[in-house]
């Protein structure tokens, strides 16, 4: 991340994390990314407690039937401009749970996804890199808004 490349998106980036049927592996890696070793907060990236404060929605896990509605509801609560980031292989493609009856399909079958972070689970560095890419996209969106 080059410092001068962020002209338009001027605030810190806040993320809201929702679990849509994950096994917890991605969740602990997201938390690990926030704790002293990786310390994502030094970039201003922060996890918040409510979707209404968030810029990025971080989704872990496969989308199960029972939680589908709740995830869509949370997605609608995030204010624009918003981005969705899927962490982990099973949210991208259902992963190892292919034949299961309880799956509602990959996350992008239900809500638009902007950033994919593959891995089972991805390393904290990969998650931070994914958030940085989301930031770049937000920058572009804000730039578009400023121009119009």
């Amino acid at each position: 991340m080059k410092k001068d490349s962020f002209k338009y998106f001027k605030r810190s980036l806040w993320a809201f994390h929702i679990n849509s049927g994950s096994c917890n592996a991605c969740d602990i890696e997201i938390l690990a990314a926030l704790t002293p070793r990786y310390d994502a907060e030094r970039f201003g990236i922060k996890l918040v407690g409510t979707p209404r404060h968030a810029d990025v929605l971080v989704i872990t896990g496969t989308m199960t039937e029972k939680i589908k509605d709740k995830v869509i509801r949370v997605f609608n609560q995030v204010p624009d401009p918003k981005l969705v980031m899927v962490v982990g292989s099973c949210g991208i493609s259902k992963g190892v749970f292919q034949e299961s009856y309880a799956m509602a399909g990959p996350v992008d079958a239900h809500i638009p996804v902007d950033v994919y972070v593959p891995g089972c689970p991805p390393r904290p560095e990969a998650i931070i890199y994914g958030v940085a890419r989301a930031w770049e996209k937000l920058e572009m969106l804000e730039k578009g808004n400023a121009a119009s």
Partner: peptide
């Protein structure tokens, strides 16, 4: 039941070695 993934059902369709990596998840 919100993250019920039907693993016991899926494991009926995998062989003994594949199940290890399914159960790991």
């Amino acid at each position: 039941g919100y993250t019920h993934r039907g693993i016991e059902h899926v494991s009926k369709e995998r062989n003994f070695i594949q199940i290890i990596y399914l159960l790991e998840r």
